[in-house]
Design a binder for these strands. Structure first.
Length: 829
DNA sequence: GCGGATCAC
DNA sequence: TATGGTGATCCGC
């Protein structure tokens, strides 16, 4: 499917363009924007849904008012202080900019609709949508001319486009096609990250390297024409541009009559050669792709189309955020690249509407809009203001966006954190039926949970009344549950409370849902970790967890902790890390670290422990997170000692040397920092006028930045702000101190110490491969009679809580040691 | 930990 | 007639 954002925005350029094109062409089909909005409004006005939309809108407006009031209180001094603080962060971000990865975002065009059209030629030239009268998942481009989009109810779509054909979804089929596509993607990046059935990110950096040495043969593909050309018949020879174009049209006939694919191996290209003008004359019907990123992506899209008869769009960029936006740019059936060059990135970002960025939705757009921010340039210009009006997480995120920064690595799907079932229905207001429904949902949920071998402690009931108002009620129980009965026992009481509270009125429901979270599966590890560490530290075991990543979060990582002036961070900034790194070692945050990171290594081992027997040696090559030197084949304990020593010792000059080795250009930047560092300073000397313009303010701003961290701004602020804001700010600032990256890492390291243990003695129920083995509790060392892993796991849990830790090997204990800078963690983390 | 909100697909 | 389901995160309590 195309960008979900299109769902909500009827007025996308894309649509306008299409309507325009259409009008120029024939002037008979499609609707203009005004007409579309009118019809939609008419269809929705007066409905309960609409009423709720109005209510929500009011709420957002209130939020905006509050924000504007806050803004009115900000003094210019505060703003200046904020400016220098933010600039400092921006500077660090700029230093850590990493352009060395090539990230690709692949997005199948109108996926579900395209599959349906492919499999049913009758639909080919008609406007169709996949979904139901209540809700559409996607529509083809034909239908989009009429304003028919994903997330629109079918009955409204029908009003927009009376001839619309609504096809019920066939997810099994989409899954099958999706896995065909994924097979191709995996060849370019075995660790590619699927976002959904029709969307994926690839990091093709490595592939590109290897590809440089590939002979042409390895980049050559045969055109499969028979599938597509039964009607057209251009013959076997596609050796000239004209025929190639014809072929292309034939190959991509389904979707986009009005927008020819930009993908055409052009005769001029030295990379792609379909005319046989290269040294080695090509056979007819073959095509050779070049070695550049662009060529790789053309090849990917070519192969997808050959294999599935479906087209994909793609974006190529140095990070995921940009790649995603790129893939939208030439949609459908096109691709766009942002070259790995700072100036290229900034040029791309310059006029980009913030709404295009993944993570900035309708509400954020509106709030920022109220501040006069529509484009990324404006987002950057208002960075100081934003830092005063938004949370640290948010303004950091905004800053990333406005600098064109994003994740340069792909994170594996983390462990699942919740599972839920919900259903919409026509009004149910009888308590009895509501309980029965609740029970059914619990049963379904239990089945799903058991399929994945999960158990959870928190049960959440979700209720939506006929006015579309949503309520959630949660309860956390002391021990994990997974059976229908156990879940229902909790959910029933939550529901009962709501029914009772409404009495004597009935609950008039249109939706009910049940969710289970607080898992014991992957979370088990955490739980165990925390248990162990809790004992060792006699601290709050809950502080071991680290906030999870969102889209926003993922972009934030490099700097997220940089404001926290801990010992570790000083080390860190000395080193000037240049890639996405973080000490979030949350077990569910795999791959958020460079592979050489100890946490990652250990996690990897834990994941693979049942598949790689040769890996069972406790010894491993680790890279110290402080000095960043590789520690060859040592035990975890020894490794930890090394880290301790490193943390205690003075910073070594090696740190900077390593840095300069990996990123010379950043050293330059670092030197500049000594006097003043300007973001507008171009790496190539020919600054474009636009760029100078954008950043002209900043040049001045940044001059005042010194190497001294400026919390002074914060203090000043606190003096001047009203009490509410004061305490808020103070708390934020305190929290940053508490959230000590090293402590987080230490915890996870400690927890990972369980890793090797579990190689022999599984802690995790999902390690099914070893179900048949006798289970020996790693805590009490006693063999357990039951082979049920869940029961076994429960036993381990109990054991841990009994405090049977003396059996833990020294290594694990030492790994779980407290950080040495005396940072304390609080329950507030 | 809870509940509401936001976001993505 | 009629406006989804699932999962995740953030923020303020």
């Amino acid at each position: 499917m195309d960008s979900a954002k299109e769902k909500n925005d009827l007025c996308k350029d894309d649509l306008l363009l299409r309507v325009g094109l259409n009008d120029n062409k024939a002037g008979m089909e499609g609707l203009d924007k005004e007409k579309i909005n009118k019809i939609i409004l008419q269809a929705t006005k007066g409905s309960r849904f609409y009423g709720n939309e109005l209510r929500k809108e009011k709420q957002v407006n209130q939020r905006i008012e509050t924000m504007m009031r806050q803004k009115a209180h900000i003094t210019s001094q505060q703003l200046r202080n904020a400016q220098s603080q933010v600039n400092r962060v921006a500077m660090e971000l700029e230093q850590s900019r990493d352009l060395s990865n090539t990230i690709v975002h692949v997005d199948m065009d109108a996926f579900y609709a395209a599959v349906e059209m492919r499999d049913n030629p009758e639909l080919k030239d008609r406007p169709i949508a996949v979904g139901s009268m209540s809700m559409l998942s996607t529509s083809n481009y034909h239908a989009r001319r009429f304003g028919v989009r994903a997330a629109m109810p079918g009955f409204i779509a029908k009003r927009l486009c009376p001839h619309l054909i609504i096809v019920p979804p066939n997810f099994d089929k989409y899954r099958a096609v999706s896995s065909e596509v994924k097979e191709i993607l995996a060849e370019y990046d075995p660790d590619f990250m699927a976002v959904s059935l029709d969307e994926a990110y690839l990091n093709i950096t490595k592939h590109l390297q290897e590809r440089q040495t590939w002979p042409e043969d390895k980049r050559k593909y045969f055109l499969k024409t028979e599938n597509f050309l039964e009607n057209e018949k251009p013959g076997a020879d596609v050796n000239n541009q004209e025929q190639w174009s014809a072929l292309q049209r034939a190959v991509s006939p389904l979707l986009f009559e009005d927008s020819p694919p930009d993908w055409q191996p052009s005769g001029n290209s030295t990379q792609v050669n379909c005319e046989g003008q290269n040294n080695s004359p090509l056979l007819p019907n073959t095509v050779v792709f070049g070695t550049s990123a662009e060529e790789v992506v053309k090849e990917i899209r070519f192969r997808i189309e050959q294999k599935t008869t479906l087209t994909a769009s793609a974006g190529i960029a140095p990070n995921t955020m940009l790649a995603k936006i790129c893939s939208d740019k030439k949609k459908p059936n096109g691709q766009h690249q942002i070259l790995p060059d700072r100036q290229a990135v900034m040029d791309f970002i310059k006029d980009l509407p913030i709404r295009k960025v993944s993570g900035i939705g309708k509400v954020t757009e509106k709030m920022l809009g109220a501040l006069g921010i529509v484009t990324c340039t404006e987002l950057y210009q208002q960075r100081a203001l934003l830092s005063l009006l938004f949370s640290e997480t948010s303004w950091h995120y905004f800053l990333h966006v406005s600098l064109g920064l994003g994740s340069t690595h792909l994170t594996r799907d983390g462990e699942r954190r919740s599972m839920s079932v919900e259903r919409t229905f026509s009004e149910i207001n009888k308590a009895e039926e509501q309980y029965r429904l609740c029970q059914e949902l619990c049963t379904e949920l239990a089945e799903d949970m058991q399929k994945e071998g999960l158990k959870g402690r928190t049960v959440t009931v979700k209720l939506k009344n006929v006015n579309f108002e949503v309520k959630t009620r949660a309860s956390t129980v002391s021990s994990v549950v997974s059976t229908a009965e156990a879940i229902f026992a909790v959910a029933r009481e939550l529901l009962r409370t709501e029914i009772d509270a409404a009495f004597p009125h009935p609950l008039r429901l249109r939706l009910m849902g049940v969710r289970l979270s607080g898992f014991s599966s992957e979370d088990d590890k955490k739980h165990h970790q925390r248990s162990i560490i809790g004992f060792l530290q006699a601290g709050d075991p809950n502080t071991g967890s680290v906030p999870e990543k969102t889209d926003k979060d993922r972009l934030l990582k490099p700097l997220e902790t940089s404001q926290k002036k801990s010992f570790f961070d000083k080390k860190r900034s000395e080193r000037k890390w240049t890639h996405e790194d973080t000490f979030k070692c949350d077990t569910s945050d795999k791959q958020s670290l460079p592979i050489s990171h100890p946490c990652q290594v250990l996690k990897k081992r834990m994941r693979e422990n049942s598949e790689t027997p040769e890996d069972s040696d406790d010894r491993q090559i680790f890279t110290c997170p402080v000095c960043f030197k590789k520690q060859g084949h040592i035990s975890l304990g020894a490794f930890n000692k090394h880290i301790d020593a490193c943390l205690d010792g003075p910073s070594t000059s090696e740190n900077s040397r390593m840095f300069s080795y990996s990123h010379t250009s950043c050293v330059e930047v670092g030197n500049r920092e000594q006097r003043s560092f300007s973001l507008c300073e171009n790496h190539n000397h020919e600054a474009s006028r636009e760029n100078t313009e954008i950043n002209s303010v900043d040049c001045d701003d940044l001059v005042e930045i010194t190497s001294h961290p400026s919390e002074t701004g914060l203090h000043n602020l606190n003096n001047e702000r009203n009490t509410e804001e004061c305490s808020d700010l103070a708390r934020k600032s305190l929290n940053t101190e508490h959230h000590h990256p090293l402590s987080a890492c230490t915890i996870s390291l400690g927890s990972q110490g369980v890793g090797p243990l579990s190689e022999q003695q599984p802690l995790q129920p999902h390690l099914n491969e070893i179900t048949k083995q006798a289970l020996v509790c790693p805590v009490c060392n006693l063999e357990q009679t039951s082979s049920d892993l869940t029961l076994f796991n429960g036993h381990v849990d109990v054991c841990l809580n009994k405090g049977f830790i003396q059996e833990l090997r020294k290594e694990e204990v030492s790994l779980a040691k407290q950080p040495k800078d005396g940072t304390k963690r609080t329950g507030q983390d």
